[in-house]
């Protein structure tokens, strides 16, 4: 049996990815997480001295805190298995990546295990976020100094 023939058999017997169902689940869960974020933003604006510009940071920190609790209780794993990108894309997913790696590394000690592994999954997000921000700012700076665009 040659590989092409096999790949055909394999495909016929492998259940197809449920694209629509996965997208629907991602939409619902992702949307709900963002709506919760909106509620937290309002709470900060009503009960504390935050404006709609500054409440964003406090909201993000609070969402990461919630992600920590859910991760520790093993609930974020279940949410992730259900929602896919719906729970991975919000900042809570970033928190989950950091927190789960930190918990996992505990048996290798605080420095090498927790410290060394904390950004095992989330590190690339930081690298590419910072890297792209740097180059975009640089490009804009050059364009402005050439007089092509304005700030």
């Amino acid at each position: 049996m040659d590989p092409q023939e096999y790949q055909q058999i394999e495909q016929q017997n492998t259940p197809p990815t449920p694209y629509l169902k996965n997208c629907l689940k991602a939409f619902l869960v992702g949307g709900i997480i963002c709506a919760i974020g909106q509620a937290i933003t309002f709470l900060y604006m009503i009960f504390f001295d935050f404006t709609d510009k500054t409440a964003g940071n406090a909201t993000v920190a609070t969402m990461v805190f919630i992600a920590m609790i859910l991760t520790g209780l093993g609930l974020y794993r279940k949410l992730g298995a259900f929602a896919g990108a719906g729970s991975a894309v919000p900042v809570t997913g970033f928190g989950n990546a950091v927190v789960s790696a930190a918990i996992e590394g505990k048996t290798e000690g605080w420095v090498l295990g927790v410290g060394g592994n904390m950004f095992k999954l989330a590190g690339s997000v930081i690298l590419f976020g910072v890297g792209s921000a740097f180059f975009i700012a640089l490009i804009k700076l050059i364009l402005v100094s050439m007089g092509v665009v304005e700030w």
Partner: peptide, 17 residues
């Protein structure tokens, strides 16, 4: 799992396979 895939408490979606 921690060696081959993700940390245990990481929320990843796995396919039916």
């Amino acid at each position: 799992e921690r060696q081959f895939r993700y940390p245990l408490d990481y929320g990843a979606q796995k396919p039916a396979t």
